[in-house]
Every structure is written in structure tokens, then in C-alpha cells.
Amino acid sequence: MAKIAQSLTGVRQHQRSQSRRKLYGAIAAHIALIGLSIVFFLPFLWLLSTSLKPEWQIFTFPPVWIPDPITFEHYGTGINFIPFWSYLSNTVIYCFFAVLGTLISSSLAAYSLARINWPGRNILFAILVAVMIVPNQVTIIPQFLIFRTFGWIDTLLPLTVPAFFGAPFFIFLLRQFFMTIPKELSEAARMDGASEWNIFWEVIIPLSHPVLATVGLFTFLNAWNDFLGPLVYLNSQSNYTLSIGLQQFRGQYDSLWGPLMAVTTVMTLPVIVAFFFTQRLFIQGITLTGIKG
């Protein structure tokens, strides 16, 4: 009896020390997480703070952290310096068609690779994977020349049209996901006389919302953030997207930090908001798509 009691207290002690250790661990983790969060978030606060400061507070040392008074004047100036609304609408058009095109073309190709058993699909898949490591820079010059022959320079077409012809990385992601959908589902549909198109559209697509959302979001971000593409293809200011407009703004008015920060905030905020609303889906998507390969 005594022995059992002894060992019981031992276990209890052990448990107590273990839970205390867990508590300390949790506290330490929180401290580290909060500290690092501040480090990662500070630049955003600095951005916002600068954009809301009266001009003379921007160039003071040591700096004023919280603007006093808070002023929105830089937003007005910044947005009026550049044809902001035209940049924005170009960017939105680019994003819309890039997302639309990528979703359609890439999911079709992924379906073909994952769900239809045709000779040569493995070769196509291998080529797609290989293409992923060909750097942009190799193809950009000939692509530029192709679009020049089409007369597409200085339009949004070189940026949007290729999206309708599949993007290897997204085909790859979608294929990986489509592979995980049980074969039986499409077999059953096929028994009922469904065509490949019916199976794709009515069986596979409805089951793939998370991965489609992920691909859509990634495409949106790529387009919203794209810099090299617009830099190479767009010349007239009336066709500029936000990213290149902001760069031009920075080039011309390189020390107007207030308006510069205001425009930067305006450009950053939509993606941050979009991300806040979709982050669960987003991160789920990354996990889902099994980047393990």
C-alpha cells in the first residue's frame, strides 16, 4: 500500500511539474510570438504613421510615432499626383482576366493529366514540371518579340492572354488535388453516361473549391503584385498598373515621403484586407495542395 501511495504521489508530482513546465513553455512561446509579431508588424505601423503625419513631422528627429494631428492630406495629394483610378482599373482588369484565364485553362489541363488516362500524359506532365525551373528571363525577350508582332505592346493583352493558356505551377497544384478525388466518383458518373465534360464540371469542380480558391488567390496576388510584366509591356501611362505607377511615382518624387507612403498604403491595403478574409482558406489551400510534391 505504502509503495503504491508513494508512487502515486510521485506520479502526481511528476504531473504537477510537467504541467508547470507546460505553463512556462506556453508563456515563453507567447512572449516570443508577441515579440516577433511586433517586429514583423512594425514596418506596417511605420508606413501608416508616416502616411498620416503632417509633412514637418516626417522629417523630425527623433521621430514622432503617433501623428499629431492625424492628417489625410497625403492621400489626397498622392492620389491626385498620379492617375490613380486609371491605374487601379487597369490593375483590376489584369487581375480579373488573369484569375479567370488561369482557373479555366489550368483546371482543364489538370483534369486531363489527373483523370483521363491517355498515352502521353506523363510526358506532358514531365514537361510541365521541367518548365517550372526555366527562369522568366529566358523567355521574356522572345515573348516580348511575339507580342510585338501581334501589335500588343502597350496593351494589357500580353499580361492577360497567356493566362488562358495554362500556368504550369497551377496545373501542377490542381493535378495533385484532382488525384486525391476517388476514382469511383467519376466511374459512377461515367456509368450513368456522363461525358468527360460533365464529369469535370459536375463532379470534380464542385469538390475542388478549396484548391480553386487557392489558385485564384495566388493568381490574383501575382497579378496585383506583378512588376516586371507591366514594366516590359506597358509604355503609356494610361495603361499602367498600380505597381508600375507606384514605381514611377517614386522615381519622380523620390523625397515626397508622405504621399509616397499614402499611395503605398492604398496599394497594400486591399491585399491585406483580402487576406484577412480568406486567410483560413489560403493557408488550408497551401497545406491541401501537398507542396511536398
Partner: peptide
């Protein structure tokens, strides 16, 4: 803030 908002 609203674009073009009041300048102070």
C-alpha cells in the same frame, strides 16, 4: 481614409 480626404 477616404481618397482625397480633407487636407489639414
Amino acid at each position: 481614409p477616404p481618397p482625397g480626404g480633407g487636407a489639414q
